[in-house]
Design a binder for these strands. Sequence first.
RNA 1: GCGAAAGUGGCGGAAUUGGUAGACGCGCGAGACUUAGGAUCUCGUGGCCUCUGGCCGUGGGGGUUCGAGUCCCCCCUUUCGCACCA
Length: 816
Amino acid sequence: MTPPETDRYLPAEVEAKWQRVWEERGTNSFSAEALHSAEPRFYNLMMFPYPSAEGLHVGNIYAFTGADVHGRFHRLTGKRVFEPMGFDAFGIHSENFALKVGVHPMDLIPRNVANFARQLRRIGGMFDWEHSVDTTTPEYYRWTQWLFLRLYHGGLAERVEAPVNWCPSCKTVLANEQVIAGLCERCDTAVEQRRIAQWFFKISNYAERLLGNLRDLDWSETTKKAQENWIGRSEGASLRFPLRDGSSEAIEVFTTRPDTVFGATYMVLAPEHPLVEALTTEDRRQEVSAYRDKVSRMDLVARKKTDKTKTGVFTGAFCRNPATEKDIPIWVADYVLMDYGTGAIMAVPGHDERDFEFATEFDLPIVRVVAAEHEDPVSPLEAAYVGDGRLVNSGEFDGMSSEEGKHAIVARLSEQGLGELQVNYRLHDWCISRQRYWGPPIPIVYCDACGPVPVPEEELPVLLPRVEDFKPDDSGISPLARVEEWYRTSCPQCGGAARRETDVSDTFLDSSWYFLRYPSSSDEEHAFNPELTSRWLPVDAYIGGNEHAVLHLLYSRFITMALKDLGHLDFEEPFTRFRAHGLIIREGAKMSKSRGNVVIPDPIIERHGADAFRLYLMFLGPFEEGGDYRDQGIQGPFGFLKRLWETVVPVAELTDGPPEAEVERKLHQTIRQVTEQIPELQLNTSVAAMMEYLNTVRAGGRKAARSEVEPLVVMVAPFCPHLAEELWERLGNSGTLFDEGRWPAFDPEKALEQTITLAIQVNGKVRGTIDLPVGTPEQTAVSLAREEPNVARYLKSTELRRVIYVPDRLLNLVVG
RNA sequence: GCGAAAGUGGCGGAAUUGGUAGACGCGCGAGACUUAGGAUCUCGUGGCCUCUGGCCGUGGGGGUUCGAGUCCCCCCUUUCGCACCA
């Protein structure tokens, strides 16, 4: 029987209706008072998007839906869930796109933001639009600038002239982490080196804390590992090799293998090392200069290639190995990097592969100082031996293990003032200067008399002027440097003529604190209101992409720590729990515009509804791993919703009274599974469980009881909020489904099976099954199993040797 | 090269963590209904065989165990990070 026209499931109507109702009732937003008093609170955060011109893509929707399901679940269990959304709209993406289409970003961005907001409403996220942020508004970046000043006054921001990564295509400076294998993260252009004075945040001061705190964070392991690797702690020693020229100077090196110092037969400096100039002897000068020139012209890609033959030149100078007290030659080679350690190494060719390769190439002495088992001091070295062993050819330290040797040797050198234990980190300071237009101006003024002077906080924001010609050029100078009427100003200290900083700050700075702003989005006195901040932060659950595992997440942690130390926060880790979602591919292939295989959400929502789309996205694979979007796949979840609708909507036909026993058992099993799995983001299996349950309810065309379907409507609600609200209302309820903590409770007693199917194995192979009451004792099970004809066949004329009984699961009869 | 994760039907993916492999869904097949459908409903669906039953089967090879997708060893493949880090 086809239902009357008005009772068909028409997702478009249902969804439009509930989106309107939510808006009218303010279902998803907190009032100012509510925000101050909400209890128990749950801050459900997801990484805010960059509002591109193309609009939301499935990747965004996937991430937001997973996070929204999670947030809605917590709300249904009675928590007050704050789920804000905003826009990360500054930065080079927007700027380049604006240049490409010839629309000013100040016009373009609001359009994109409006379009994103429309699409975000359409997918039914529980976003609190009363507490949104847009990083490009002066109301927001005023506080980004404030943040810069706080760090500046706290001694955590400094201006340094440093070699920087310059992308000739984007015409901008890149942070080290934005250089991927020597290529620009955005455009894959080879990156060059330039020297510019830049503002740096001293994140390296926090390396140890950033690393140490990781242990106690409830984060995806992969993300923690990525941060750990990025911070790159290594233990070793700092050793000094005195110069032979009689001066008191020494070359400092960092090594993780001080135990091999007796094998250091030469020294290598990075070509950029400041001592190279002074050390190089006259007769070597020409060659050394030529080599340094060649290296400096090399782009970072070529420089970092590891498979090329080692190159280098001898400087003519020598220094003394503090262990052997022998003079060793000083070379310059590009395999030593200026930005790691001290830019100089002691080369131990016997026990380091790179040094071995170099020594072989240039015929430098190779000495064995570590012997593995079955080796002796004179065993030839065919290749570098990098493992541990006993020290040899190491004077009084001979015979020690590598580990003992490390400590003993450093202890000895330390007595002579020539070394000490040291920890080194790979993490560099964070360069926040960008020679671009589309970002918050760095609030500094340069005065001839006073030098760099911070803009007083009461003068913030330093407004980004509307400039029609914002195209970067080869000069490497910010477009703002061409706007004289803007950069000319007076010194806040002496009142004399001064010039504004014309660089803007890195987008990662905007996003390093946005989660602090959401609850206080309308506070004009504070970046983040102290009371609201202590109520809502740290964030309870954060969901986002692993592509931000090191950049955004590490910077946010650093900023939070710094703000704590500066007395602005009382916690130092911003995100209690973080989970990275997986990536969506389509029909087995990566989605990309160039392939033309991107999923366009709008037509799907029109045809099947946002609810079905959400449900399908959550169903197609484990949320933390992602999955394969197959166009036909939505049919399953869509059909499920339709059947759910058709089961519930003829409300008058629902029977009263308790659920039928069989159905009730399945119901409680389902509630248990879904209740346990949603917080763990095992969303695909939760959906499968609900499908199974509906199949049980409808099995053989049976009539459903109201008490059987009502809990299912609630369980479906996190995934399909519109449909759930509609069914909830049609079941005779008023108000929103989401306000009263309506999540169904499960009764473990009722979830228990009464009979089970026991698998009967003979010698480990299943030969039959028998149905038994739960908890059947072994003896009974064995005798019933013996009666099973097919089992009996295998027991004939053999001896029963052993019985393995796993109650309610399996019986294995071992014969032979 | 280093590190991490993962390899299960035609496909996406399940599997109480050592206990009946393939839940749920897509697709496919058969049937029902319909004047028609890419609509709906029911049943079936890992492969093979001598088909009331049996054999094989979770990338490959070995091992532990009464029992292995799950644990151990070796190998192969894929994906994602990192990459001369001293």
